[in-house]
């Protein structure tokens, strides 16, 4: 697979179809994966592809406005590119998307704690990865290996349902405890391809929408606001939770909103580049029971 990838990237750079390709490479420690910015044919040799290529690289695309960029993308990354296209953050003609057929990536945090069960070590997001194939890539590099199958009875919202079943006071207590650890490093925001506001609500000072301090008010407001801004936009790449250094289960909050959006509007983000963004359109059938 990786040889095919390298050949494709060399070809793209040689033909000047793109100025830069963003992919993955091995770090100097020989284990970790780091983003790779390939600008010449020679550097294509650095590219790698395996289950450790976790990062969603589509967030880097906004750094190169007006340039023709190639990007190595998995299924989840493709969905985020779709949303960025829907929201006019990217120009399709400036992109060359190299889709890597993905059978799931590793969850390094779990790898550390559950060394026995290889299956568990795949990121949770991969288990419920929508099987519907997106056809927006310019080229697809196929994986000849055996596909991992999602069990038919797999319920991606199971943890959410469990949480919903709890009393509101219990839920509040759980999240207050989780958010009490938040150090406000904003890694969740910075790593998120959808968080591209030039000035984040958390940075505004006039007015300041919530406390900048690591207190309950500030932490709760920040985390809830972040999640709400992703309603109908989060494509479940799980990067926020992966990047969080203190281990807050951020994906669960996004997942809850994803579930609500699906139940209320039958909408799933990132599945069609032609569709209008959920909150950019209006339908008479939209639920309105909240208007009293």
């Amino acid at each position: 697979m990786v040889d095919e990838l390298k050949a494709k990237v060399r070809e793209l750079l040689k033909n000047k179809q793109v100025e830069l390709v963003i992919g993955y490479q091995r770090a100097a420690d020989g284990v970790s994966v780091i983003p790779c910015f390939v600008e010449n044919e020679k550097d294509a040799e650095l590219l790698i592809w395996d289950a450790y290529c976790v990062y969603n690289l589509s967030g880097y695309l906004k750094d190169y406005p007006g340039k023709k960029i190639g990007i190595v993308a998995k299924d989840c990354d493709l969905r985020s590119i779709v949303v960025l296209l829907q929201e006019n953050q990217l120009k399709r003609e400036n992109l060359f998307i190299i889709e890597m057929e993905c059978h799931g990536v590793i969850d390094e945090k779990r790898l550390k704690y559950d060394t026995q069960n290889q299956e568990i070590n795949f990121a949770q997001k991969c288990k419920g990865c929508p099987s519907a194939k997106l056809s927006i890539a310019d080229c697809v590099i196929k994986d000849k290996g055996e596909k991992r199958k999602t069990p038919d009875d797999y319920d991606e919202y199971e943890p959410i349902r469990k949480m919903e079943a709890k009393a509101i006071s219990e839920r509040l207590k759980f999240w207050q405890e989780e958010f009490s650890r938040c150090i406000r490093c904003y890694a969740c925001r910075q790593v998120c391809p959808m968080c591209y506001c030039p000035k984040c609500v958390a940075e505004q000072t006039q007015p300041a929408w919530f406390s900048k301090g690591t207190n309950l008010e500030g932490n709760l407001s920040w985390n809830v606001t972040r999640a709400m801004h992703l309603a109908g936009r989060c494509i479940d790449c799980g990067e926020c939770e992966r990047a969080c250094p203190v281990g807050i289960p951020l994906r669960d909050i996004n997942k809850k909103i994803q579930k609500d959006v699906q139940e209320l509007f039958s909408y799933q983000a990132g599945l069609s580049a032609e569709a209008k963004p959920l909150f950019a359109c209006f339908d008479k059938k939209d639920p309105d029971d909240f208007i009293k």
């Binding site: 780091i34 983003p35 910015f37 967030g59 880097y60 150090i183 406000r184 490093c185 904003y186 890694a187 925001r189 910075q190 790593v191 990047a243 250094p245």
Partner: peptide, 13 residues
């Protein structure tokens, strides 16, 4: 610095 995502992990930790 190309890959830096401009978060506060390195400085806060």
């Amino acid at each position: 610095s190309k890959s830096c995502i401009s978060c506060g992990v390195c400085t806060f930790l």
